[in-house]
Design a protein around this nucleic acid. Structure first.
Length: 618
RNA sequence: GGAACGGUAGUUAAGACGGUUAUAACGCCGGCCUGUCACGCCGGAGGCCGAGGGUUCGAGUCCCUUCCGUUCCGCCA
């Protein structure tokens, strides 16, 4: 079969010609009734072909849209006859005249549906093999196929729309920041590895064998140096690299809108960031955002939502019950470090199967189970646990959760980290399942007063929550060493519909404080000097107070475009195993290349493959 | 490092307890058709059921291993 098709394509390819002196006069989306009578030249791809024997209709597609062109034996017999060879995705140029469609033949679904172009002459600019999937929005090809044929996938109008939207957002950002006095400065991609934070992508140095560059996780240090250099307002739309596992909203290389400002405090940065978002939403979606955005401290976020990036488009807040059940006869509750609950209004109708599914869901976060109470009436509570609760406890639960007949309550008891994660994520999960999230709403939120440190159980030490250059809040300097768990940072995250879209902080600009921070993180003087000496020295020479923020551009565009994955707003994304199905990167390199770099693999790749195949079979 | 789901014509899917020649839709190829627009009608081709091994008289179906994709946990200063 494929031979047959290739023969066909080969045969057709004989008719391919160059543009010659033909010039495109307009795109495939612009012609309307006002253009009737105009002679035009369109170029594009064959989207659909409807051959009626007599008339041949072709929907011609370019990046802007579709126009129906008609090959008629009455108008141009030769052009009509030759049009028989047209197939999907053939590239053609047509010259013809715009005319209104016959009475009742307009297509209201098409922007250009009132008119058509009747072809006088046309050229075959290229043939195409039959694409492996339909080049249409409604195409339901699997993502692996789409990624392997990404250049075809990107022809689909929805993908074009996403990348056009991305472009518009980037231009809006550049315009705003330029007008606001920011300077765009590029920083190195080949830079120094710093073990704090994410895993680095390493690049071997040929001229310095045994040494490696790292690709930047972010331009953090360079932008602070630029502040020390006196540029005052910097920005960059820049690729960042982190060698960590992928998610729907995480790629190994991703784009940040990175900004840094001198002589500012939190208010200045947050206000600027809000106005930037306002501009982007105005220019890209034509939507007005109300400023300022609501704010919430990290403590409040964890208390009410269990997560540091609350989705505020719906309620169902977490309610604290730890104190109320401290002396409960129900030992599981009484002994738990934390007990919290959420209420699903009208959730009494949930089936056992649905509740079981939610129980499975919270197990992901380490929960042992999921206690629930269905409020059948004021007095009748259907629940596996209600019988363990005293009347007083019931009353507290009823009051705090404002429980009414027809509701269901879900409880979680245990370590605060687990309770918050389980209920916080269950809250969002249920809201999605039950369609409680209003469509087409954008809820921005600032989360502030983040902890300065978090305890790393593996390394048995405190590590920076944001990064080690974040300034502690006023009055929290002493806590850095005396009580690191309670030290708070001058850090802020911008949250949009439950997604972290940006984060930043006021930085440490005093060398003494920076040194203290390294002490708190358990760095020796030597190690601090070796790894961050250049920043430290810059702080010693008149560093201005400064702070900044960085936005995850891919996530922001994903939300603007209404997509579920950032892969849909990145032209050439990687799979979850960080491979590129189009180019087959990463790939093996020659021994000669490795030798030049002074690198020898511990195990030859072929041997590894063999080892896999040799594994004993059951 | 871990968990879950998926892989069957070009594509998307169906395939009851393991049992005839593995279905359907779309796409593709050929024919017909002068107003279609997801055109219509008639005909046709198209399959190593991801790969390897096992159980069995017999495997798309059961078991094991492995590869690929997706989602999530860990991880992501």
């Amino acid at each position: 079969m494929s031979e047959q098709i290739q023969d066909l394509q080969l045969e057709h390819s004989k008719y391919i010609t160059d543009l010659g002196d033909w010039t495109r006069t307009c795109s495939c989306s612009h012609l309307t009734a006002e253009d009737v009578g105009r002679d035009v030249c369109l170029m594009g791809w064959v989207q659909f072909r409807r051959d009626h024997g007599g008339l041949i209709f072709v929907d011609l597609r370019d990046r802007e849209g579709l126009t129906q062109v008609v090959f008629s034996p009455d108008v141009a017999p030769e052009a009509h006859e030759q049009a028989g060879i047209l197939r999907l995705e053939y590239v053609i140029a047509i010259k013809g005249r715009v005319r209104t469609r016959p009475e009742g033949m307009a297509n209201p679904n098409l922007k250009t549906g009132e008119i058509e172009v009747v072809v006088h002459d046309w050229k075959l600019l290229n043939t195409s093999k039959t694409p492996p999937f339909a080049i249409e929005d409604r195409c339901d090809a699997g993502e692996n196929l789409r990624l392997a044929w990404r250049f075809l996938d990107l022809r689909r109008p929805c993908m074009q729309k996403n990348l056009i939207l991305r472009h518009r957002a980037m231009q809006a950002i550049r315009r705003f920041l330029d007008e606001d006095g920011f300077l765009e400065v590029e920083t190195p991609f080949l830079t120094k590895s710093t073990p704090e934070g994410a895993r680095d992508f390493l690049v071997p140095s040929r001229l310095n064998q045994g040494s490696f560059y790292a690709l930047p996780q972010s331009p953090q240090l360079f932008k602070q140096l630029l502040m020390c250099s006196g540029f005052e307002k910097y920005f960059q739309i820049v690729r960042c690299f982190r060698d960590e596992d992928l998610r729907a909203d995480r790629q190994p290389e991703f784009t940040q809108v990175d900004m840094e400002l001198s002589f500012v405090n939190e208010e200045d940065v947050m206000s600027m960031a809000e106005r930037l978002m306002q501009r982007v939403f105005k220019d890209v979606l034509g939507r007005e955002l109300q400023l300022p955005f609501p704010r919430m401290t990290w403590d409040e976020a964890m208390r009410d939502y269990g997560v540091d990036k609350p989705d505020t488009r719906f309620g169902m807040k977490l309610v604290e019950l730890t104190d109320a059940v401290r002396n409960s006869g129900f030992k599981l509750f009484a002994q738990a470090p934390m007990v919290k609950a959420i209420k699903v209004e009208g959730g009494e109708s949930l089936t056992r199967k649905e509740i079981d599914a939610y129980t499975e869901f919270v197990r992901i976060y380490g929960a042992q189970g999921l206690a629930w109470i269905k409020i059948k009436s004021d007095t009748e509570w259907q629940s596996p646990i209600a019988k363990f609760l005293s009347e007083e406890e019931r009353e507290t639960i009823r009051t705090r959760l404002e429980a009414k007949t027809g509701d269901i309550l879900f409880f979680q008891a245990g370590d605060p980290e687990m309770v918050n994660a389980a209920l916080g994520n269950l809250r969002v999960h249920i809201a999605q399942k039950l369609n409680l999230i209003p469509a087409d709403s954008f809820n921005f939120l600032w989360v502030t007063e983040f902890p300065l440190f978090e305890y790393d159980k593996e390394e048995h030490r405190y590590v920076a929550c944001h990064h080690p250059f974040t300034s502690p809040m006023e009055g929290h300097m002493e806590l850095m060493t005396s009580d690191p768990a309670h030290a708070k940072a001058r850090a802020y995250d911008m949250v949009l519909n439950g997604n972290e879209v940006g984060g930043g902080s006021i930085r440490i600009h005093s060398a003494a404080t920076q040194m203290r921070m390294f002490e708190a993180l358990g760095f020796s003087d030597e190690r601090a000097e070796e790894q961050f000496g250049f920043l430290f020295h810059a702080l010693e020479f008149g560093a201005p107070p400064h702070g900044g923020i960085a936005f995850g551009l891919d996530r922001l565009i994903m939300l603007l475009a209404g997509c579920q994955s950032i892969r849909d707003v990145i032209a050439f994304p990687k799979t979850q195993k960080a491979t590129c199905l189009l180019t087959s990167a990463p790939s093996q390199v020659s021994q000669a290349q490795l030798r030049e770099l002074g690198i020898r693999l511990r195990e030859a790749p072929e041997k590894k493959a063999e080892a896999r195949a040799d594994k004993p079979q059951a």
